[in-house]
Nucleic acid binder design. Structure first.
Lengths: 334, 334
DNA sequence: TCATCAAGGTCAAACGTTTGACTACCTCCC
DNA sequence: GGGAGGTAGTCAAACGTTTGACCTTGATGA
């Protein structure tokens, strides 16, 4: 077969009908009155010619791109992989493509330039885009946008997870094992998720009648986690357990604990937010709280598909969230 | 500012010129003769109105989408993150958007449906798409495509890395430390990378005057790696070192070694292909061979930008490739 | 017999760019 | 005076869909 560019007109002439009929058949237009045999003829022609609609022409006419954007800070963070997966699936269900971009490639500034006008029908901002003038520009271009798992300081347009509940799950688990000196290896100061996880930690400790333990902040990387953990271990009355705000930090934290010559979980227990396949293969396997990230991506896209440009969205997604108990947590040393 | 949809016509009427002039100014058409002051007027109008070209209309007219696709099996595999990064950057340099899709969301079949006709100017296939009828369909739609780090059995259109060299680097390192019974934890049977890494392993062993050690295949996941490693350890004369074809497998492999009660690197050394930030934080830190994956993505896109549909491409990319020695390799037990 | 109605389509005008062809004006030179 | 040539633009036809308005035919009801 040679490369060909099949258009509506080709199909129409093969099926001996007007282009309009083909268009309506292809799009299942309910207003179309058509004899079954004619429809058959059209579908046959579509099939024989291998017709696929030209998306540019369609977009131009309908001013809908059938494409959503998802912007993330970095593909290397596996936490985002699940969000992408859910978002892709939801977009596909809507007959749309998801284009995922990261800040590592172009930066947010260039991103809008590249997307031009009318390339996407909506944009999901996952942990990126705060503070920049991007949202204003999106509004100007009438592109709906939603922040995922981040609240924006000014505008109320977000879907977040119940990070407080996640933190409670983790802390309650530690408390249940008998820990009383529980530290918190928090997320970076600016991050909204970090604040919510801290709030949950603090509330759970209070409810258990325990004072907040030592706290150290780290960005969501192994290196950051290692540094913060070293800090926590140097505290005057070191903790017997640590609730870590992020699994990537936790990996670094575990290394720091080993570096200090302490045994996990015999001398110190660790539990982190976000689960990874890899967590089972660490030494020891890491106890985590699994968050409904895939659901988050899915929900984001489906909201994008239905919101009006000025709708406010403030949603706390309650998907399944559970503690996955592995070897990194145990009763404290006596 | 209210949402507006600014078109060429708006700019033209504000600048008191024809739409054609605006178009030529915006696109820097060298054939245009224009007075500097007129150009200024146009640019001013563009700026004041916040004009951005409508990509759908442009694509329709020029039949170029200014968009490239990259298809990967799974976002959760951090190895692909680097490829994406490079590809995004190269696309941006060409003024194009990169849309990355994965098999987890829609499957390859649906992917083409969604992309329709004319949505992308070229597609990079990274470890996905073999065997399906996809490439035939791409050819039919006259969409250039290139396989990344995979050779297709039939058509010769690929860019690969020098996996043989990577394997040699790893094996030579082990040989240099005095190992003589070196096993290979290979990749999945079908994978082209697995074959090349095996070939490199085998060649390096031969050159060192050593016989191939035991070999076990695994998919590129921790679970697969753990199972295969267990198999290797059960061999009659167990190896003192293992060359693992992939870092994800290696993480599982390390766990299996620990499960068997053996110490790394004292009783068994491990080295794997592909580096991750995380490798430094494993226990012990994992020795790896770092591959130029970012370069691979970059090169893929830039080739896409320049090839003709029927060009053959058979390129072995020689970017920097180096052994990163960490704690998982040492001299064999005596 | 004529108006009405439904079925089964057809017609043609957009959508916003790009681009080859064309024009209007001026200058220069013989 | 007239032709050549250059400058600075203008004109209008595509590109492939979608969609509201319109048309034709045959059947039905009064």
């Amino acid at each position: 077969m040679k490369p060909v560019r099949v258009t509506l007109a080709d199909v129409a002439s093969m099926a001996k009908v007007d282009r309009a009929v083909v268009s309506r058949v292809v799009n299942n237009d309910p207003t179309l009155n058509i004899r079954p045999e004619t429809r058959e003829r059209v579908l046959l022609a579509v099939d024989r010619l291998g017709y696929r609609p030209n998306v540019a022409a369609r977009s131009l006419r309908t001013s809908r791109a059938h494409m959503f954007g998802l912007f993330i800070p970095d593909f290397a963070n596996p936490v985002y992989a699940e969000i992408i997966k859910g978002a892709e699936a939801a977009a596909a269900a809507l007959g749309c493509v998801l284009v995922t971009g990261s800040a590592t490639g172009t930066g947010l500034g260039g991103y809008m330039d590249l997307l031009g006008t009318g390339r996407i029908d909506g944009l999901l901002l996952a942990g990126a885009g705060e503070g920049t003038g991007l949202t204003a520009e999106l509004d100007r271009a009438a592109v709906p946008w939603i922040m995922l798992n981040r609240r924006s300081p000014s505008v109320q347009r977000y879907v977040i997870l119940d990070d407080e509940r996640a933190a409670r799950l983790a802390v309650d688990h530690l408390v249940g094992q008998g820990h009383r000196r529980i530290a918190h290896l928090a997320g970076p100061d600016g991050a909204d998720t970090a604040q919510r996880r801290f709030a949950g930690y603090s509330a759970a400790m209070r409810e258990a009648g325990l004072p907040d333990g030592p706290i150290a902040a780290a960005d969501y990387t192994p290196a950051g986690g290692a540094a913060a953990m070293t800090e926590l271990l140097a505290a005057p009355d070191p903790p017997t357990a640590v609730f870590v705000a992020n699994v990537a930090s936790a990996i670094g934290a575990m290394d720091a604990v080993r570096g200090a010559g302490l045994a996990i979980p015999r001398q110190i227990s660790i539990v982190a937010v976000h689960d990874l396949e890899l967590a089972s293969y660490l030494a020891p396997p890491l106890t985590t709280v699994r968050m409904p990230l895939e659901e988050l991506g899915r929900r984001g896209v489906s909201l994008l598909g239905s919101i009006k440009p000025d709708d406010a969205i403030e949603e706390v997604l309650d998907g399944p969230m559970n503690l996955i108990t592995r070897g990194s947590t145990a009763a404290p040393p006596r």
